[in-house]
Simulated assay, not measured.
Amino acid sequence: MDLQYLNNFLALAHYRSFSAAADACYISQSSFSKRIMRLESDLGVTLFERSTRQVSLTEYGKIYLKYAQQIHNLSQQATDEINRRHAEDEGIVIGGIPSISEYGILDLISGFIKATHIHCQVKSAPSEDLEPMLLNQTLDFAFIKEVQHTNLFNHLPYAEDHLVAVLPISHPLAKQPKIKLQQLANEDFIFQPVNSRPYDLCMTICKQSGFTPNVIYADRIIENILNFVKKGLGISLLMKKLVPTDTDLVCRPIQPAVVADINLCYLKNESLNSYGQCFLDYFVSQNNAH
């Protein structure tokens, strides 16, 4: 049995109009009519009474409708079960900000794999890219810094970090325990990429402190940013956990303080497969342990 013909039959039984049913099936009315006629020919009976005003089911059509709906439902159930099993066989896909190592996210995922032997694919991307990926269901979970679409995601707190001023050891402000942002108004800055969330955050807080930062360089690679700072070409504002210990650099807390939250996110109103639920349970148990 051609399920397309069966679906066309169900559409016509529902709409009682050849034109409306054809539109709903995204085919021309002439092609749709030929399919219904072919189905009736194969069955050897007339399924619909045609009139100028309305299409109605014959007694044969009413019998066929009862079983056609059951066949359609069973086909859909089979497809759903296959899709669920395929998703489980593929494991889960987890997204994370580029600094997944610094925040211990890789350790968490590797611990999960060792404990459960469930396959995990990890994709790294900035937070502003992870949210659309999660919405498009190319990810099952994502570790996102400063979640924006909180109404669309379930989000569980994972970690927090503080923004610091990163200076060369020789900088006049390097010996201060804390630095007010206004003290940096005349500095040259090296930031993370333009239009990224870290870049926008730094621009916003500087402007709130009364100045527009003079950004001479922007880079996604933290090591490059730190090398610029070490050479005395400028200073940076970075999350503290992204800056490794280096005798040529100092990190100083800024005022006003800025705290960023990292959350594990997954879609609301979407049920997790068994592997996804297993990861969520593992995450919660590890978070509670700490």
Rank of each mutant, 00 (worst) to 15 (best):
L108C: 04
I105H: 02
M239N: 12
A22R: 02
H171Q: 07
E223Q: 10
F112N: 11
N269Y: 09
Y26V: 14
K175N: 12
T58G: 01
L10I: 07
F279K: 01
F189C: 01
K62S: 13
D89G: 10
H290R: 15
Y282C: 09
L47W: 02
S271Y: 09
E270Q: 15
T150C: 14
L39E: 03
I254M: 03
D107P: 02
K62D: 15
Q69F: 03
T247I: 13
R50F: 02
G61T: 06
V258D: 08
A260R: 05
L106Y: 13
G232I: 13
K62G: 13
V243D: 10
L242A: 13
R35P: 09
V215C: 06
A159R: 02
M37A: 11
L233E: 05
C25N: 08
D246W: 01
I109M: 02
L267H: 05
L106Q: 14
F112K: 10
Y67N: 04
V122N: 05
A24W: 00
L249C: 04
K180I: 10
A24E: 06
G104W: 02
L163H: 06
S28V: 07
C278F: 00
Y64F: 15
R53G: 08
K62N: 13
S19R: 10
Q277M: 15
E81A: 14
K241D: 08
D23G: 08
N136F: 08
N154M: 10
I100G: 00
F211W: 08
I144N: 07
V166T: 09
N263M: 11
V215P: 00
V122E: 04
S274K: 09
V122P: 01
V229H: 05
S30W: 00
A218Q: 08
N151C: 08
A165K: 03
S30V: 13
F153T: 05
F189E: 03
S127H: 00
T58A: 01
I254G: 02
E102A: 06
I225F: 00
L156I: 15
K123C: 06
L264I: 07
V243R: 09
S30Y: 02
Q286M: 05
P177M: 06
E40K: 03
V122D: 05
I100P: 04
R197V: 10
S17L: 03
Q255T: 15
D219S: 15
I216H: 04
E223D: 14
L39P: 04
S274G: 06
S33M: 14
I100R: 05
A257Y: 03
V229T: 11
H14A: 13
P157Y: 04
S170M: 09
F32L: 00
A289K: 11
L47A: 02
M37K: 10
S33V: 13
L65G: 02
K240V: 09
L181V: 02
N288A: 14
L135H: 07
S124Q: 14
I82G: 03
S285W: 04
Q182N: 11
L74C: 10
G96E: 07
N224M: 08
G44R: 05
Y275S: 12
L167A: 11
S31H: 11
N224Y: 07
E59D: 15
Q148R: 07
P172A: 12
I190D: 01
Q277D: 15
F153S: 04
S51M: 03
Q29M: 09
E146P: 05
L43F: 08
I169W: 00
Q286S: 04
V250G: 03
G96S: 15
S110D: 14
Q54C: 12
V229A: 07
Q148F: 07
G232E: 11
D246L: 03
